[in-house]
C-alpha cells in the first residue's frame, strides 16, 4: 500500500512533463510501475502541462535532468564505496536515489502546495492534508540493518555514530555527497542561503502587495458566501482543527473543496503567483552577480558528474 502510494504520486506528477514532450517518461513509468500503480494512474486525470507553475527562482535550482545526472554519479560512488568496505552488493539496496521519471515528477511538483491545496480532486479526497506519501526516510532506515547503515550513513538506526574503523564521515552516502559537490561547500551553502533569502523576501513582499490583498479579500468574500470565515487562504490551511489528525474529516474536506472553488473563481493563484514572480525577478536582478556565480557552481557540479562516469 505504501509502495503504491509512492509510485502513484510519482506517476501522477510525472504526467505533465510527459505531455510537455519527454517521450521516454511515460514508457519508463509504465514499464517500471506495478500493475496497481498503472491502474491508479489510468484513473487519474492528466494535469495539463500549462498548469505546472514555474517561478523565476527555479532557474537557480537543479532541473530534473541535472538532478538525475547528480543522482547517478552519487549512486555509482555509493555502490563502489560500500562494496569496497565489504558490503554485499545486494545489501546496498535500497538506496535513496530515484529514476529519471521521479526526478521529473519532483521538479514538476515543486510548487504544487505553495499556495496550499489547489487541485479540486485533491481537496475532495484529502482536504488540506497532502495526498498520502511514504515517509521516505523512515523507509530507508527501516530497510537496512545497523551493520549496513554503519557503512551507508556512518551511524546506526538509533543515530549513534559507528565505531568501525575506515568508514568515511557520514558513511558512503556522506562521501558520495562530498565527491559530487566539487565546489567548495561553504560557497554552495552561501548560494543556497541567498536563494532562500530572495525567496523569503519575495514571499513576504507578495503577502503585503495590494493586488494580492485584494485577491485575498475576494477569496474571503467567496468563502463567506459558502459559509466559511477566513481572512486569508493560509488561515484556512492552517486551521488548528485540521491538524489534530493525520487524515481529513468531512468538515475539512468541505472547507477545502470550497477553498479551491473560490481560488478558481477569483483567479487567486494566478494573481498571487504573478505578483510573487514579479518580486522574485526584481530581487534576482538586485543580486544577479552572486546568483549567477551560484548557478555556475551548480553547472560545474553537473558537468563534473556527467564526465566522471
Amino acid at each position: 500500500m505504501t509502495a503504491r502510494v509512492l509510485v502513484r504520486t510519482a506517476v501522477l506528477l510525472a504526467l505533465p512533463i510527459a505531455v510537455a514532450g519527454c517521450a521516454a517518461a511515460p514508457a519508463d513509468v509504465a514499464v517500471e510501475s506495478s500493475g496497481g500503480a498503472a491502474a491508479v494512474a489510468g484513473a487519474e486525470p492528466v494535469r495539463p502541462a500549462e498548469t505546472v507553475l514555474t517561478l523565476p527562482l527555479d532557474a537557480y535550482a537543479l532541473t530534473a535532468a541535472e538532478d538525475h545526472v547528480l543522482a547517478r554519479a552519487a549512486e555509482a560512488h555509493v555502490r563502489h564505496c560500500a562494496t569496497s568496505l565489504g558490503l554485499d552488493a545486494a545489501a546496498v539496496d535500497p538506496l535513496p536515489f530515484g529514476t529519471a521519471a521521479e526526478s521529473a515528477s519532483a521538479a514538476a511538483g515543486r510548487h504544487d502546495r505553495r499556495y496550499a491545496v489547489a487541485d479540486p480532486e485533491v481537496a475532495a479526497a484529502h482536504g488540506y492534508h497532502p495526498p498520502s506519501t511514504t515517509d521516505v526516510r523512515r523507509e530507508f532506515y527501516e530497510a537496512h540493518t545497523d551493520a549496513e547503515l554503519a557503512i551507508l550513513v556512518g551511524a546506526t538506526a538509533d543515530g549513534v555514530p559507528t565505531a568501525r574503523e575506515g568508514i568515511p564521515d557520514g558513511g558512503c552516502l556522506g562521501a558520495a555527497a562530498r565527491a559530487t559537490a566539487v565546489a567548495d561547500e561553504a560557497a554552495l551553502r552561501a548560494g543556497q542561503e541567498l536563494v532562500s533569502a530572495v525567496q523569503s523576501d519575495a514571499w513576504h513582499a507578495a503577502l503585503a502587495n495590494p493586488r494580492v490583498l485584494d485577491a485575498f479579500a475576494a477569496w474571503s468574500a467567496c468563502m463567506a458566501e459558502a459559509g466559511y470565515d477566513y481572512a486569508a487562504p493560509m488561515d484556512a490551511n492552517d486551521d488548528p482543527r485540521w491538524w489534530t489528525s493525520d487524515v481529513a474529516g468531512p468538515e475539512e474536506i468541505a472547507t477545502a473543496v470550497a477553498d479551491v472553488a473560490c481560488k478558481e473563481s477569483t483567479g487567486l493563484i494566478a494573481v498571487w503567483s504573478a505578483v510573487e514572480a514579479g518580486h522574485q525577478s526584481r530581487l534576482i536582478a538586485a543580486s544577479r552577480a552572486e546568483l549567477d556565480a551560484y548557478r555556475a557552481l551548480l553547472d560545474a557540479q553537473v558537468s563534473a558528474a556527467s564526465t566522471a562516469r
Binding site: T2, A3, L6, P94, P96, G98, T99, E102, E139, A143
Partner: peptide, 13 residues
C-alpha cells in the same frame, strides 16, 4: 530501480 526496491522493502516493513 532503487526507489522501487525501496518501496518494495517498505511494504515488507
Amino acid at each position: 530501480t532503487p526507489i522501487r526496491r525501496l518501496a518494495a522493502a517498505a511494504a515488507a516493513t
